[in-house]
Computed example of a mutant assay.
Amino acid sequence: MNLTVYLSGEIHTDWRKRLKEGCEAHNLSITFTSAVTDHDASDAAGDVLGVESVSYWRDHKSAKVNAIRTKTLIESCDIAIVRFGDKYKQWNAAFDAGYCAALGTPYITLHNEDIIHPLKEVDGSAIAWATTPEQVIEILKYTLTKE
């Protein structure tokens, strides 16, 4: 079995790298997809549609262009991992989790204990909550290797 796993959320730590390397170390058959993780490139995604003098409209255009990628990848994944970090509020990650819930796409949340309360609804629809990429790796390993 091969899984397609969509990685959503926080972009300032190495959680994606740790997850991918851990899955490779276990020879798990996983294709990883993700939103654009280059912050500047993501913010500029809509610039191809014309320069905007008002930041709201630049952000609006970029959100729409980014949504083409995000929507397509979430709709085609088998499972999503949604990471919430400590430094920034990841509203986009919460939106991705909600979209997964609406589609019936299983997702795992990945975050520290200190933000359990603000994420209670997001965690409530998740199939699992993990605090480390290594826990997620074990879930994916179990999914792919146990009969």
Rank of each mutant, 00 (worst) to 15 (best):
F84C: 04
L28M: 13
A35Q: 13
V136S: 12
Q90S: 11
K120S: 15
G104I: 09
H12G: 09
D43S: 15
D43N: 14
K141G: 03
A130L: 07
G22P: 12
E10Y: 12
G124S: 15
P118T: 03
Y99C: 02
D114Q: 07
E75M: 11
G85N: 09
K87E: 06
A80F: 06
V65T: 06
N92W: 00
V36C: 15
K120G: 05
G50K: 05
D43I: 04
I81W: 03
V122P: 14
L73V: 01
M1Q: 13
V51T: 06
H60M: 04
K20N: 03
Y107A: 09
T109G: 09
G46F: 08
E10H: 13
A130K: 10
S34T: 07
D123W: 07
V54M: 03
L103Y: 05
Y107Q: 08
S62I: 03
E24D: 15
I11R: 15
L103V: 03
P106R: 11
L7T: 05
D123F: 10
T4W: 03
L144I: 02
E147P: 13
T72H: 14
T13V: 02
L110D: 11
I81V: 05
S29L: 03
K141M: 08
D40C: 01
C23T: 04
F32Q: 02
D86T: 04
L110R: 06
N2R: 14
V5D: 09
F95N: 02
N112P: 02
K120E: 11
Y6M: 08
G104F: 11
D14V: 09
H117T: 11
C77T: 04
A102G: 13
V82L: 06
N92A: 12
H12F: 12
G104N: 08
A25M: 09
D14S: 15
I116R: 09
H111E: 13
R58N: 09
R83L: 07
K141W: 11
